[in-house]
Computed example of a mutant assay.
Amino acid sequence: MGSRSSHAARIPDVDSIRRETGFSQASLLRLYHRFQALDRNEKGYLSRMDLQQIGALAVNPLGDRIIESFFPDGSMRVDFPGFVRVLAHFRPVDDEDEGNRDPKEPEPLNSRMNKLRFAFQLYDLDRDGKISRLEMLQVLRLMVGVQVTEEQLESIADRTVQEADEDGDGAVSFLEFAKSLEKMNIEQKMSIRILK
């Protein structure tokens, strides 16, 4: 079909994508090439099957949940801006980013709160705004596989929900989730260094 160019000018809406995601022009170009490589049939979008070709997601226990995050609202395809928006959550936080941010601008996609929101939605399988004991158990099963007995997993799920559940409703809200992780360096743990 058409030839694939390496010019950033060929990336649709490159300036607005750069502002929204915080990626440099060079990073966007690398991501655009990756997007094009995954889009083997040059459709202009990626399907779930295209994303399943990414080796790191294939071996990640939460790979299917991460792939699902590229398709909000049950859509069947993701275009380049949507692809980059999801990846922007994993962009490392630069100290200079925080100091120069205009408070009137939206919070960057790679901010601590947005990283926490992204992580929360990996657990909130039914998207009701709460992580139930059953949802916690399902994610734990994905993460540890057969290395732990079902009884041990249930105990871990119970304890995790109980410790985070401050209002006693038997589930973990986003605010409870964020508070339970306040000492964890989410900014580092949810960063991929190549995504500068």
Rank of each mutant, 00 (worst) to 15 (best):
M1P: 09
G2I: 03
S6E: 08
R10K: 06
P12I: 02
D13M: 05
R18S: 14
R18F: 00
E20C: 06
T21F: 08
A26S: 15
R30L: 03
R34E: 10
Q36C: 10
D39P: 10
N41Q: 15
G44W: 03
G44V: 02
G44L: 03
R48C: 14
D50A: 06
Q52P: 00
I54Q: 14
A56R: 08
A56D: 07
R65W: 03
F70Q: 11
P72R: 11
S75W: 01
R77M: 10
D79T: 12
F80D: 01
R85Y: 01
L87N: 06
D94F: 12
D94H: 15
D94Q: 15
E96M: 08
E96K: 13
E98I: 14
N100P: 00
D102S: 09
K104V: 02
P108V: 04
P108M: 04
N110W: 07
S111Y: 05
R112V: 01
M113R: 12
A119E: 04
Q121P: 00
L122M: 04
Y123N: 09
L125H: 02
R127Q: 14
R127V: 03
D128N: 11
I131Q: 01
L134H: 08
M136F: 03
Q138A: 11
V139T: 04
L140K: 06
L140F: 05
R141F: 00
Q147H: 13
T149L: 01
E154N: 13
S155F: 14
R159H: 12
D165I: 08
D167E: 11
D169Y: 10
G170A: 09
G170H: 08
G170T: 11
L175I: 04
L175V: 10
L175F: 10
L175D: 15
F177Y: 13
A178E: 13
M190D: 03
I192N: 06
R193D: 13
K196S: 12
